[in-house]
Amino acid sequence: MIERIVDEIPRFFTWYNTIFFLQAMGVTLALTLIGCGLGSIFGFALVYGRQTRGRLFTPVRVLIVGYVEIFRRIPFLVLLFIVLFTTEGFGVRVSFFGIALIAICVISTAYISEIIRAGFEAIHRNQWDAAEAMNFGRVATLRYVIMPQAWKVILPPAFAYFVMFIKDTALASQMGVLELTRVAKIFNDRGYSAFLTFGTCLLLYFILSYPLTRFGQRLERRLASSRNR
């Protein structure tokens, strides 16, 4: 086996193939960044909607809670299929990249909204009370009082979630998105050894994920020891 790999290496790591892999790495990263970035924005919106009061908004709150609970309990792979077939079924033309992106958004919105909610709940009730008694509106309360305190609680788990999703995007290969796993599979199908193709693929994921994981751990320690300001 070793001879086979050694034999294949010069043919495998050509200029063209290397660029192909690097581009795929870019696609993996783009999926994660854009998907989770949008997920953060929507997740924040969900938390905002969940904080509404009064009977008028009860349906909104029920929908949000239902959304969050359901989409945290559906496998990413199954959601990818649902998005793929739904867009196809209704004749909406979306690229494979777009389908994966929608699926990532749908799931990350649900998870990140829970992370943000937990962050808000970590801020003592009396901060909300004081702001309300001083006539702060909801937006002003979040902007001046809650977010400046809550981001330190929210950022570490949100960042860890981003990094975790780098790995989960591997499933987008099933939709035909030319990301890392897909490209490795293509080379494997062309006859290159699985250890070489998928080994390279694993290594590239590791290069993406490991430094970010370490950075996230340091970030967490730094924020945990920093004072409240």
Binding site: K167, D168, T169, A170, L171, S173, L180, T181, A184, K185, N188, S193, A194, F195, F198, G199, C201, L202, Y205, F206, S209, Y210, T213
Partner: peptide, 14 residues
């Protein structure tokens, strides 16, 4: 730090 799917690919195809 690597995807389970690719690990299984290595096991299954490698």
């Amino acid at each position: 730090n690597t995807p389970a799917l690719v690990q299984i690919y290595v096991i299954f195809y490698g």
